[in-house]
Design a protein around this nucleic acid. Structure first.
Lengths: 344, 344
DNA sequence: TGGGCGCAAGTAAACGTTTACCTTCCTGCC
DNA sequence: GGCAGGAAGGTAAACGTTTACTTGCGCCCA
């Protein structure tokens, strides 16, 4: 491997001069500069980033901790982070916690989660990362560790009281989507939420209620039912809600919306005409259903980009004050709200 | 940050002794060893991996180059790699080429691809990775670069003449799946392949023909039609094949199978009874269709694990001889081949 | 003419480790 | 008593950089 020293020898200059050229500092004659660049090229020189980071203390590297890279929304967020890093000439090191792969949907107890996270942070800090991005939805644990960690942490896709976080705006999504249904003429709107303790659902519901209030439509709490994110709960509650006379259903994720669709298809209810249905997440499946499912697209890539930009800003000396940045979702209407003819 | 030196001072020993303890070498009294470990713990010491790698030349780090982390099968492969690395106490650095995000399905010309790849390799080598794992399906370019790169490269999910590669066995999948259909009693089997230049399709077709031959069923080439991986081509060819009297269709991916399903649903053909249909990839959507789609599950995680294990073996001094490791897919039968009642 | 200045280049120390080699000291044996 | 040998620990160089400081030199202006 070519080093700065071998270049210096070949070009008959000192290593300091080579270093200056390679780092774009001035104080070197153009002629010498060209000579050194040529020699470097010739020797196929590549700086040893480890050595550079060791000496200078600056590594231009951040760590990404992902709860589980195989969970459907994670890759897009990471892609956004990668994009922002590329733009800023930063590198990133990924640590994959494999939480879902290891524990399934039942997250491990807090102590285990904490231990796993601690390990990951340890490795990243050993690699001298300047900051950490946490990607996932279980942020409470991160919060506990934030004080112990000597580098700034930013959360993507979850919030944490003491950390800057970038998430999408659930309340606004709930509001917008409800307005959208109201425009369709629906006034009895059923909602199948996630588990009651999910802040996603709480916020979406709040937006829903605010929109109803803003349009002077009464809110009927019996039309809001707590699902468990799974298909069956959508199926089961579809009956309850339809029997209660709703003309539209907002399922808090696409999977439960699928369950609603199952029920309707099995009972001859024409979704898009007799009933409007909208899901959440814009998963692959939403394009495949019959009718195609209207849904809400969270700005995953932008969340990644923004979180990374925010971390880099802090690393650049910007204010560390914790804040929550909320990005807007996009409502994607398809046949399940527009009707079959209209959408084609 | 605590260093080996600060530990040495606090424990009143030399840095060499501390290093010995931290690296588990012997020649240190148990008493001293404990003292040092305690002090290290107390100071919350974390070794500086950059310094370690600089001095020792060993970084225990590999690089992963992924064509695009947002493509549906990539995260699982990377997860497998991460698992293998964790087990072997190796670290990995991810480089995401963002190829599909940037260029869509039309890959960039070879020169551009090469330039992007070269950049990524450069960065990884700068970080002193001991080896590289290439994850993606466009391997010809990697091959060109293999000689220029001073570290071993292993391909996951694609093959390259001069490199060790880990892929799934398309031919076997085609064979097994055809046998499965033959067992159902189908003798006229239609096939909608990918584009003719796709080796995936070529190999699956070969397996298909071999299975027919092995069971003395004549192969009718007019029943094999070249699709383009997209839904519409499945829809279009479904008509052709069904008119030609097939009783089963093997679409070379789930998306095209979806198109077939569209056609059948629109024309009152009972898939699972009048016609058996099987896709490929086990994408999320295959669980959602009506009827649920039978498909083939490629061993993505295992491919990642195996590729990583293979690279680590080479790094450990094992033979560098290029070989192709083929792992078996799993056939997942659902309603589209079993019929609606049987599968429930 | 000479002092001062600024440019170009070089010197050497340092970053946090690892490691080859050296020193001490103790034990045991002839 | 002398000495080999081994255990426990220390010394210092090196890895590939960056960087503060120094040197040398030509030029300008008083």
């Amino acid at each position: 491997m070519a080093t700065i020293r071998s270049i210096a020898e070949r070009a008959n200059v000192s290593i300091a001069t080579v270093s200056k050229v390679l780092n774009g500092k001035n104080g070197v004659k153009e002629e010498t500069r060209q000579l050194i660049l040529n020699v470097a090229q010739e020797l196929n020189y590549r700086p040893n980033l480890n050595a550079r980071s060791l000496k200078s203390g600056r590594a231009y590297t951040i760590g990404i901790i992902a709860e589980d890279i195989t969970v459907f929304n994670t890759p897009d967020i990471i892609d956004g982070i990668a994009l922002a890093c590329d733009r800023a000439n930063y590198h990133y090191i990924l640590a994959n916690l494999r939480l879902f792969k290891r524990f399934g949907h039942h997250m491990p107890d807090e102590a285990t989660h904490m231990a796993i996270l601690k390990d990951a942070i340890s490795v990243l800090l050993s690699r001298q990362v300047a900051g950490i991005l946490y990607v996932g939805s279980h942020s409470h644990v991160v919060n506990c560790l934030a004080e112990l960690t000597e580098v700034p942490i930013v959360c993507a896709y979850c919030t944490s009281p003491s950390l800057t976080s970038v998430i999408y705006d659930d309340e606004k999504a709930g509001y917008d989507l409800t307005e959208c249904l109201l425009r369709h003429g629906d006034t009895r709107i059923g909602m199948i939420t996630g588990p009651v303790e999910s802040p996603h659902s709480t916020n979406r519901s709040r937006g829903h209620m605010r929109a109803l209030y803003a349009h002077s439509v009464p809110y009927d709490p019996t039309l809001t039912l707590p699902g468990d994110w799974e298909r069956d709960s959508g199926f089961a509650y579809a009956k309850t809600l339809i029997d209660a006379g709703v003309t539209a259903i907002f399922a808090h994720n696409d999977i439960m919306a699928l369950g609603v669709l199952d029920y309707c298809n099995a009972n001859g209810i024409d979704v898009g005409k007799d009933l409007r249905l909208i899901g959440f997440d814009n998963r692959d499946i939403s394009l495949v259903t019959r009718p195609r499912l209207s849904t809400v697209l969270p700005p995953l890539n932008e969340i990644g980009q923004t979180a990374a930009a925010e971390l880099l800003r802090i690393l650049d000396g910007g204010s560390q004050e914790a804040k929550v940045i909320q990005l807007s979702c996009k409502i994607i209407e398809r046949e399940s709200t527009l009707g079959t003819e209209a959408a084609l």
